[in-house]
Amino acid sequence: MKALAVESVWKYYGDYPALRNIAFDVEAGQCVALLGRNGAGKTTLLRILGGLSRPSKGGVRLFEREHSDRSSRALTGIIGHGIAVYDELSAYENLKLFAELYALENPHKAAMEWLERTALDRVKDSLVREFSRGMRQRLAVARAFLHHPKLLLLDEPFTSLDDRAIALLQSLLRDSLAEGGTVIMSTHQLREAMELASHVVLLNRGGMAHSGERTAEMLADTGWLYRNYGDA
């Protein structure tokens, strides 16, 4: 099944096209690495996929549904630059809040389950403000996975996380992929991304430079892709 269909998406900032005719499909179960230089449009594209921004032209379909359909939002999970949890609420309250907003069957159970999986159950009633950086990041990961999203959108997930959170995220991503979930991540950390990715999409100046399977050359030599498809 097609998890995601990007249908010739354009995004203008004023008269300047930040995204130019982006089109690709992602099958369920694939892990796509979204690559490109700074300003190539990776974040803009991810924001459109996550419903935080609307394309100026073209459209996006999630699981064969129109993107504007709110119910499709329940199928996506997002990790952006910020940790997206509230400092003045406790870990448990944060997870329960999002479980309720995603209208899960049993918010309490979902929150407890994820506190356990991220090893935060002992501090579940402490305010996030008092957490260490690593604990906050693990909570952020738990928040994104809480509702068992079928499509994960990650913007530079490995840059701001510490080692333990990266290990957690990678294992969760592997689990999700094994269960037929779909992952799209933009990243600079080419090695980590290439190991996980099954496909790559390379953006250049807001346009599509390349999209296709991740090949052995890419894994062996991380600069290969840029040399062949980007302007070096």
Partner: peptide
């Protein structure tokens, strides 16, 4: 703070 607004907008709310 922490980009919480993005999390709310991308949720099904």
């Amino acid at each position: 703070n922490n980009d919480c607004l993005d999390a709310l907008i991308s949720s099904p709310v």
